[in-house]
Amino acid sequence: MVVDRQGRSFRNLRVSLTAACNYACTYCVPDGRRLVAASDELSAADMASAVTLLVEATEIDRLRITGGEPLVSAKLEPFLRLISGLEIKDISITSNGQLLAQRLPLLLEYGIRRLNVSLDTLDAQAFREIARSGDLGSVLHGLELARVAGVRIKVNMVPLRGANENQILPMLEYCLERGFELRFIELMRMGHLARDTANFSRQYFGMDEILELIGSQHTYIQAPAPLDSTALRYEIAGLGHFGIIANESAPFCRTCSRLRLSSSGWLYGCLSSSNRHALAPLLSKPHDEALSELQELLAGALADKRDSTFSGALIPMKAIGG
């Protein structure tokens, strides 16, 4: 097991099943064009082999399947089938929810009982302006079906000044009423926003402002969270919880245990680094040789982690898994 000087190791793997997405959210892509799958993406079998190697070489016991948008990928079913026998205590999926109603039976069949669904507003017009695609009603319908099926749901919202900050309280009420945990994600300096500092500053709506708004309607206290959690959690007595992923206000770098595998087979150890490490070539090598070389890659990826401050990187989040 590879451990750095701060005692961090990789325990949480995020796999970008595909770079393709049926949305073109304003904070993810600058030009309104949807991301499409790269021609060099790994097959479902190769992706499963990569995950198997990583689980063997590390203490990874949590896997989140991301994208792009994983529910658009034909690789989803074979990938889930191939990894179903691995000793991973928790497998979850992050999705925009557009295809959730159609894909829910497949997720339930393979034991997926935890979802993170990205939803930035309950206003249909604002939804189209931010996502630049999709249909709000379909997302809400999918969420309801998943709730009835007993799936644990977290809803991810990115507050954007001038676009949806007026939805913070309505989104909170919607989630509290349904037993969903709403997580506010501070706007991240990723992709085009790493360069466009003026646009980032104009849209950024931070933790203090979020808490001030919620405090105008609810009394809350900070709640316990796992040591390597990305979110600060809060409890509203008798109603439920919400969280804030405060990349700018309260970075979680010191305890980060996340490793990302891109759809093209690159390992990323830190969102504040564009450094990448090629895992794909190891898949054709003998098992022992691949494991030995993987340890070197993991050491490099772990060394990429920042000590305390999140700064973002030029690579888009959808390219490496949200």
Rank of each mutant, 00 (worst) to 15 (best):
M1G: 11
R5T: 06
G7S: 03
F10A: 10
R14C: 00
P30F: 11
L35G: 09
A38L: 11
S39W: 07
S43G: 02
M47Y: 08
M47S: 12
L53S: 09
L54Q: 08
E59Y: 10
E59F: 11
D61K: 09
R62S: 13
R62A: 10
I65H: 04
T66R: 05
T66I: 00
S73E: 03
P78S: 09
L80H: 09
I83H: 04
L86W: 02
E87C: 05
E87Y: 03
D90E: 12
N96V: 07
G97A: 01
Q98W: 02
Q98T: 10
R103A: 04
L104C: 10
Y110L: 05
G111F: 12
G111P: 06
I112R: 09
N116C: 13
V117A: 09
L119G: 08
Q125V: 12
E129V: 13
A131E: 11
G137A: 13
L143P: 04
E144F: 11
R147H: 14
R147A: 15
A149N: 12
G150W: 12
N156G: 10
V158R: 01
P159I: 00
L160M: 13
R161V: 08
G162K: 08
G162M: 08
A163V: 14
E165D: 10
I168M: 07
P170K: 11
E173Q: 13
Y174C: 00
L176M: 07
F180L: 02
F180V: 03
R183I: 12
F184Y: 15
I185C: 14
E186F: 05
M188Q: 08
A194G: 00
F200H: 07
I210S: 03
L211A: 06
H218S: 05
T219V: 09
L227K: 12
L239K: 15
H241D: 06
F242A: 05
N247T: 15
E248I: 13
S249L: 13
S249D: 14
A250H: 14
P251H: 01
C253Y: 02
T255A: 14
S257Q: 10
S257Y: 06
S264A: 14
S272K: 06
S272I: 04
H277W: 15
A280L: 00
L283Y: 08
D288F: 01
E289A: 10
L297S: 04
A299E: 15
L302W: 04
D304W: 06
K305F: 07
D307K: 02
G312M: 02
K318L: 10
G322M: 04
